Amino acid sequence: MSLPSCFEDVARLEDVMSTPSPGLVADLQRVAGDLMVLGVGGKMGPTLARMARRAAPGKRVIGVARFSEPGLREQLQAHGVECIAADLLSREALARLPDVPNIVYMAGRKFGSTGSEWLTWAMNAHVPALVAERFPRSRIVAFSTACVYPFVGVDTQGAKEDVPPTAPPGEYANSCVARERMFEHFSHAYDTPGRLIRLSYAIDMRYGVLHDVARKVIAREPIDLAMGYANVIWQGEANDWTLRSLAHCTAPTSPLNLSGPKIRIRDVAVALGQRLGIAPVLTGAEAPTAWLIDSSEAYRLFGPPQVTLDTMLDWTADWVQRGGKSLGKPTHYEARDGKY
């Protein structure tokens, strides 16, 4: 993989994040039929859909969302992604969607959950049931989250897929367990092949754990170390591995952890501070536990991550220092109570 030293603008960033690997091209050749991305309007959806189109130019790639963001639909269409506006909470809208053999499910709700828990459960549990019932004969690779796991010791490599997702903190995390259970139920009922992608913190220059820490360093804001460790992965690789998972589905569906090795927030803050020429303001003490996952099964399937932490730190420091665009969507990685 040939990587740039920095990203001069958003167009270049999104071009790199949507560049498929040879492994993805080969895997999608082995997967018959067209592809539909449900919830394409989120943070990762647009570059994932573009990557699928570039990796498999002979397939239809369909993006489904409400398209409330101005210009997104036109942008995706310019890259060859067919767009359908639909509310996934509507059975009637789902019924009108085309039958396709391959689905990447990206819909969900996290931020704003506190105070609107009812909507979070509807999006994270009810919609997956509607989708799984509507597409019983499709491969369904569904985004989940590392938040379904309990906290584990920071001296470990993290939770593996066989750790039961029992009693994670907060309603959001529990609604994500329900999302998985809905896909599992219908997969068992209809023998639907799939994967549940337990993603931990994809890194884009415009958001993510490294972006959050870098912005706090520049603003001289305190960086809470209580959640002292996390897993991160370059979003381009997260897109790539998610799409490759279509060639590695199981029936019934099964979880797959997806992220990079664990990082220490203290070390990241110091490293970014050195690149930015600013001493970070650190506060608090590291707890003995954190949300950490072991992605060794993904590495077995796809190989280890190719974009290193040092590269992501270089990119992040350059982007933030130059005043690059921010999505204004903090990850709240430091939250230990599960409230978002």
Rank of each mutant, 00 (worst) to 15 (best):
Asn102Arg: 02
Arg73Ser: 13
Gly45Glu: 09
Pro330His: 02
Thr253Glu: 01
Gly39Met: 06
Gln321Leu: 09
Thr316Phe: 03
Val154His: 06
Thr316Asp: 07
Thr192Phe: 05
Arg134Met: 02
Gly41Trp: 06
Ala78Gly: 15
Val131Asp: 10
Lys110Ala: 14
Ile62Arg: 05
Tyr340Gln: 09
Phe111Asn: 10
Ser175Ala: 08
Thr114Glu: 12
Lys325Tyr: 15
Glu334Cys: 13
Asp34Val: 11
Val127Thr: 01
Pro136Ile: 05
Arg53Leu: 05
Phe183Pro: 09
Ser90Asp: 09
Val152Met: 04
Ala125Gly: 13
Tyr229Trp: 12
Leu76Asn: 06
Pro280Met: 14
Asp27Ser: 06
Asn257Glu: 03
Ser326Tyr: 04
Pro46Phe: 09
Gly170His: 03
Cys83Lys: 10
Arg206Phe: 08
His126Lys: 12
Leu28Ser: 08
Gly115Leu: 06
Ala251Gln: 15
Leu282Ala: 11
Met205Ser: 02
Ala125Asn: 09
Ala95Pro: 03
Arg275Gln: 10
Leu3Tyr: 14
Pro255Glu: 01
Glu297Ile: 06
Asp34Tyr: 05
Cys83Trp: 06
Ala55Gln: 00
Asp318Thr: 13
Asn231Leu: 07
Asp314Cys: 03
Arg264Asp: 08
Leu243Thr: 08
Ala247Pro: 07
Tyr172Leu: 10
Met36Ala: 14
Glu133Gly: 00
Ala290Glu: 10
Pro128Thr: 12
Leu119Gln: 04
Asp314His: 02
Arg181Thr: 13
Val25Lys: 12
Ser113Cys: 09
Met182Glu: 14
Gly115Ser: 07
Gly153Phe: 00
Ala214Met: 10
Pro288His: 14
Leu246Asp: 04
Gly273Tyr: 07
Ala214Asn: 13
Met227Phe: 10
Ser187Leu: 09
Lys216Arg: 15
Arg179Lys: 15
Gln157Asn: 13
Val152Leu: 02
Pro255Tyr: 01
Thr283Ala: 15
Ala129Asp: 08
Leu94Gln: 11
Met17Ser: 12
His211Asp: 14
Ile278Met: 11
Ala230Lys: 15
Gly45Asn: 06
Arg12His: 00
Pro136Phe: 03
Gly108Ser: 14
Phe143Val: 06
Ala335Gly: 01
Ser245Lys: 01
Glu133Ala: 06
Leu28Trp: 04
Leu28Asn: 04
Ala86Val: 09
Ala167His: 15
Lys329Ser: 08
Lys325Pro: 04
Ala52Asp: 04
Leu246Met: 00
Ala298Gln: 01
Ala238Glu: 03
Glu184Asn: 12
Ser138Met: 02
Thr283Trp: 00
Thr47His: 06
Ser18Leu: 03
Glu171Thr: 02
Gly194Leu: 04
Ser90Trp: 13
Pro101Met: 07
Leu119Asn: 01
